[in-house]
Write a protein that binds this DNA or RNA. Sequence first.
DNA 1: GGTTCCTACTTACTAAAAGTAACTATTGAA
DNA 2: TTCAATAGTTACTTTTAGTAAGTAGGAACC
Lengths: 146, 146
Amino acid sequence: MPKDSDQPLQIVLSWNAYQAACPTRLMLNRIADKWTVLVLGLLETETKRFSTLQRQIGGISQKMLTQTLRGLERDGLIARTVYPEVPPRVEYAITPLGKTLVGLLAALRVWSETHIEEVLEAQNRYDKAEQQALSEETKGVRIIRF
Amino acid sequence: MPKDSDQPLQIVLSWNAYQAACPTRLMLNRIADKWTVLVLGLLETETKRFSTLQRQIGGISQKMLTQTLRGLERDGLIARTVYPEVPPRVEYAITPLGKTLVGLLAALRVWSETHIEEVLEAQNRYDKAEQQALSEETKGVRIIRF
DNA sequence: GGTTCCTACTTACTAAAAGTAACTATTGAA
DNA sequence: TTCAATAGTTACTTTTAGTAAGTAGGAACC
């Protein structure tokens, strides 16, 4: 049963992401994140350097990679090791906690890759219908959505 | 094998979220979203009205709920049905495509709820270490991260 | 017959986050 | 002396999220 260390006596029966103040809400925000999914996916099997990660994740900027890695480190999902060499070498490794999550995130990636065509078709249908509704409207027909 | 309907001849061997231009990247952004996780979780078993969803998701604004629902409808993950009554009634139902995703998202929610304490402890450790590093710095000790 | 209530939204505005591009530090090698 | 390499920062712009108030069409109340 979770406890709360803040001042006012507050008994938390269980964590629930549907509660606005619940810290799991913030957590969802962090783990359900595009860059997190991609970074953790790469660290699943082996430790990697900053530059390697950046090369393997198409289109991530240094700033966003740094930010994502810092967040994951803070949450205890990855570990950062600095080798004081020149040029510098920094290695990122997944932690045991991170390993409990990486499978779920990989499943999301796979879902995206396997269902993307269905989704794109749905988007086309939706956009076409919306377009038609708009052109009807310009012809003087008033469309009410509810 | 996926095909691309855009003008320049382009052969896509397979979708890959690590490619910057891949549409699965956008998809990850959509499904890996706090509100999406919570909304789809509620629609898993039964259709719900707008106001019911808003009541059950603590802290979501009308604007964000509308936005999330529109996105999910466009992607073909939920279906919107309007009953032209007064006061208006609009029902949201999960689609077969949505059902293939909802389990994965529920797993994320459960992960957050079961591992949140471990994460909070890791954050405390990280923040304490950072605080110490900062106070050392003000004492005149230069800290170099790499 | 004016006011209030109901639902499911919009719209205008502000704050926060994401993205872009250029800059930094260190030092070994050309 | 300038360049290259790594792993970042920093300043700035754009996009997105969040807040709060307004809208529409009646139905019921006073």
